[in-house]
Simulated assay, not measured.
Amino acid sequence: MKILLSGAVILALWMGVGTYWYTCQVKGLCANSTASDSVSGSKAPLKKPPIPKPVKTAKWLILQDGQALFAFSDFPHLKQDAASVMLPDPATSFSDSIYNYLLAHPNKYVTITGKYTADEVYEGLFANLGEARADKIRQMLVEAGANPDRIRIAGQEENLSFDAGGNSSGGIAIELHTMNAKVEEVVDKGITNRTLYADFGAVKFQPDPTLASYAAEVKAYLEKHASALAHVTGHTDNVGSTATNMKFGRWRASKVRNYFVSQGIPSKRIKVDTKGMDAPIASNETEEGRAKNRRIEVHIK
């Protein structure tokens, strides 16, 4: 009997070590692994963004349909002839505030208007310097987790005042609006066909703000389209066997499904599938290509 028990213990230990080695070292799915499951790098664990406190002297107002929604005690700062936008400490939480609002209001979108003067010098990809400045703010919102399809940018010529050092306060206007049919069409197209790169491949799953935002949008979309289903498909790189990668693809897709369910989406509206390593979108010969292939695709139809 003792020999049988000892053999069972040794077998269990061997299986546990083998599973750890394959999962962590070969596939790189453990939390402390150096392998990445994200093309752009993983974000910090999801936190509830801070809500700005009321300020006694409001300078920079973020509007909703013409009415003040958020107020900050200092303006963004611009540099003459430059696209850069510097945010002083009192205004740095603006991106978290807007992200939080969009998370709770899936029918809203953002317009960002960057100001510029006619005599400012600009050579770049955008139509004017104001639009380039607006894009800097757009990037901050996207990094906070906002859906880029829900952000519009524009430039507006205005008589900005620059000091002797070429500095100006203000020059950025942000307003939230209710979506019209044209904006909703663009946003819905992005919601129904989305490729996700996040930490869903790690053993310890931690949703990031981008996934939280997307889950809220998927929930709202399914509520509007009663017959639609979300098809969640897991993909992997070519490291390991075909059978094992099919397993990991389904495992990753299941993590996204479980998170969607935790956010209030009925499980019966979600279908999970796996393609394993059979549908790469990049070469598996490089780490960058393999990282692109480790993904989740969501199609709603």
Rank of each mutant, 00 (worst) to 15 (best):
L102S: 00
I112A: 04
E158P: 01
V218A: 11
C30D: 13
T274K: 03
A104E: 12
P280F: 11
I265E: 02
L29E: 15
N245H: 07
S283H: 08
M140K: 14
G276Q: 08
K2W: 12
V17F: 10
M246A: 05
F72W: 00
K247Y: 10
N32H: 13
H235Q: 09
G145C: 02
I10K: 09
A35S: 08
A216C: 01
S283Y: 02
S95P: 03
H299F: 13
G165W: 01
C24A: 14
K43R: 06
A35G: 04
G114I: 04
S93H: 08
S93C: 09
Y20C: 12
L196C: 13
Y22V: 08
Y214P: 10
E223Q: 14
K59Q: 14
A282R: 07
V183T: 11
L141E: 09
A212Y: 03
K268T: 03
H77Q: 15
V218N: 06
K275A: 15
L5V: 15
Y214T: 10
G18Q: 10
A216Q: 07
F260S: 01
P88G: 09
G190W: 01
S267P: 02
M140G: 02
K219P: 06
F126Q: 14
I151W: 00
N284D: 12
I281R: 09
I300T: 01
S262L: 07
V187D: 07
N100I: 06
H299V: 15
G16D: 03
F126N: 10
Y116E: 01
P76V: 11
E285F: 06
K219Y: 03
R194T: 13
A91M: 01
N32D: 11
R252N: 13
A164K: 07
K268N: 12
N284H: 04
R295A: 10
Q156I: 00
T111P: 05
K275P: 04
Q67Y: 04
M277W: 03
E185I: 02
D119V: 15
A230Y: 03
E157Q: 14
V272N: 04
K268L: 02
G114N: 10
K301R: 10
L222K: 08
D89C: 01
K47D: 04
N284Y: 06
V26F: 03
V17H: 08
V232L: 10
L11W: 07
A91H: 00
V261S: 06
G240M: 10
I296V: 15
N128Q: 01
G264V: 09
N32R: 11
N180Q: 01
D135L: 12
D149C: 03
Y20A: 14
G41M: 05
G249E: 07
G130W: 00
H77E: 15
T19V: 08
L176M: 15
A216S: 12
P90A: 12
S42H: 14
D188Y: 14
G41N: 04
I3Y: 07
G28P: 08
E120C: 06
M1N: 11
G240S: 02
L29V: 12
I151V: 08
S169Y: 11
R294N: 05
E120P: 05
M86S: 08
D89K: 05
W21A: 14
P209Y: 02
L4W: 12
S95G: 08
L176A: 04
A154Q: 04
Q80I: 07
S93M: 06
I191E: 06
G66S: 10
N284L: 05
T23V: 12
L141M: 13
H299R: 15
